[in-house]
Design a protein around this nucleic acid. Sequence first.
DNA 1: CTGAAAGCGCTAACAG
DNA 2: CTGTTAGCGCTTTCAG
Lengths: 334, 334
Amino acid sequence: MRITIADIAKKANVSKMTVSRVINGRGYVAPKTAEKIKKIIDELGYQPNLIARSLVSKSTKIIGVIIPKVEHLFLDNYIAQILSGITDEALKKDYRIILIPVEYSDKSEDKYIKIVKNRLLDGMILLKTIIDDPGIAPLSETQFPFVLVNHKRYSKKINFVDSKNIRGAELAVEHLYSKGYRKIACIAGSLHETNGKDRLRGYLKKLDDLGLEKRDEWIVFGEFRKSVAYHECEKLFKAKILPDAVFCADDYSAIALIEKIKERKLRVPEDIGVVGFDDIELAEYVKPSLTTIRQPLIELGISAAKILFDLIEETRKPPIHKLLNVELIQREST
Amino acid sequence: MRITIADIAKKANVSKMTVSRVINGRGYVAPKTAEKIKKIIDELGYQPNLIARSLVSKSTKIIGVIIPKVEHLFLDNYIAQILSGITDEALKKDYRIILIPVEYSDKSEDKYIKIVKNRLLDGMILLKTIIDDPGIAPLSETQFPFVLVNHKRYSKKINFVDSKNIRGAELAVEHLYSKGYRKIACIAGSLHETNGKDRLRGYLKKLDDLGLEKRDEWIVFGEFRKSVAYHECEKLFKAKILPDAVFCADDYSAIALIEKIKERKLRVPEDIGVVGFDDIELAEYVKPSLTTIRQPLIELGISAAKILFDLIEETRKPPIHKLLNVELIQREST
DNA sequence: CTGAAAGCGCTAACAG
DNA sequence: CTGTTAGCGCTTTCAG
């Protein structure tokens, strides 16, 4: 049979309450009784039932990480890095992490609220949420602590951590320009995500600033997915005027592009310069290694977790909006 | 105020029990009352409190994944792949995953039992456990369902899923032999893990079988860590007789080795052939791409999860011991 | 400094 | 088909 606080109490000839006080280190207990109780707890190997405790305390010390329900999610190094950051920080604060896969296509307004109502979580971090996700607004109307990662939405009731995506895209184009490239194409990311949109915007803006040519046929949509990018970038080679460089909104797309370029017996960076975005682990290993805009993914995770814990512990109040810096990492592809 | 089952009951003029029956679809409820109750539940947006439910049902539909408490854990593609498999399977069975980092250096016997006693989990999967982990035996004495991954321990009370590591190492050496290499060195993995030991054993056995020379100076210990391997493999170049090939017990070590070889202006595979183990994502992207023994990491995760769910649902009983096949993936490094 | 009573939100068991 | 009672294991409250 399971050992409960009542067993300890009985054996120590005290009430459950006194045992509870000892366990939680709250309230006065005579040193001698405390000692006795501790000893019995040790002897019996008692561990408090977290479920029972949570039922009354209303806190579980568990945070949820909402992830899109797709197979092989952690193979995406982008996700893995962010999750690493969250985990690192949770460790320090003694919070547990529970992974909650949510269907991308679920358009219901209460998809997150349902989870909240289950009372299992003290807070949540949402990864890869899309712009028109109908679940976010209702969630923000509750008092429940949550943070969006890599999703920029200015609102008094929404907290987010994002990178400076527009700036990043600008840096990329500037860099290509400085390297002498003038016909700069783009493999855009998902326009359902703010970071995808922002990177495209930064690209277009910088072309304007530099007085470079913009052509519709120089923009293709890779959806932040390698397989899609691999297929779509084909179109760039069919352009009336061939680009001499490509800004890719993510590294996986850039890697797909490089594969395609090689298949066509063209050279990187001599014939076509390539810049990626994110700086995933692969970036420095592919051949040629990838020049990319590094966004601090681990820090993004750490930051989101820190903010969430502050929100939970009410040491800070919404809205918290944070933008992290990006930097260009020059490698061989430009 | 939070809506509870009592609110629904009141509004529907029935007892809590009837509501409970409707929610869980158990027991008889008049279709009309059921309908009415469902409607009220919808209207009020009621969601059951999982904590309260678990307190009585003794089941949480949450499994724990025990991971070593190291920073940036998910950056290890090996871990990421296994976790991907576990997640995929948990999704199907509607189980949640909670990540539980445990201190490597914790030598206490009750480290896992403590977690079990917290009653938060229905079962657990342990990753990267070491051979002399004092926590495993006591855990196996409980009735609590758990599965070890990539850890081979034959015991009536222990369940595990592992790859055929010995066979894998043999395959690697055979392959090097067939390519004409005769002086085959080894960067061994951690001997604190069964897979590290097995791979070393397979290597030694196959050298014997083939009548190849064995030399102590041809074996270094990389601990399954890139930085350690990078440092330790230095010794191979200081050997009296230089090896012409190296079997590495993991891909990260192989990548470290290749870097070192390049620094020394030697060529892979002409001067030195290299075979890795695992087939992490990077393996096909490094230059030269890495010949390696592929162990089915995702399947390892899937398998572990399946076994665990069977154990939890008592459709199977311990011990369950499963060994997955490995295969050689030939690339450029040999 | 300690204890008794009440209750968190739910379900199992039994009675009707 | 539905309700009552009891209780999961803990903490809060208040009294002593």
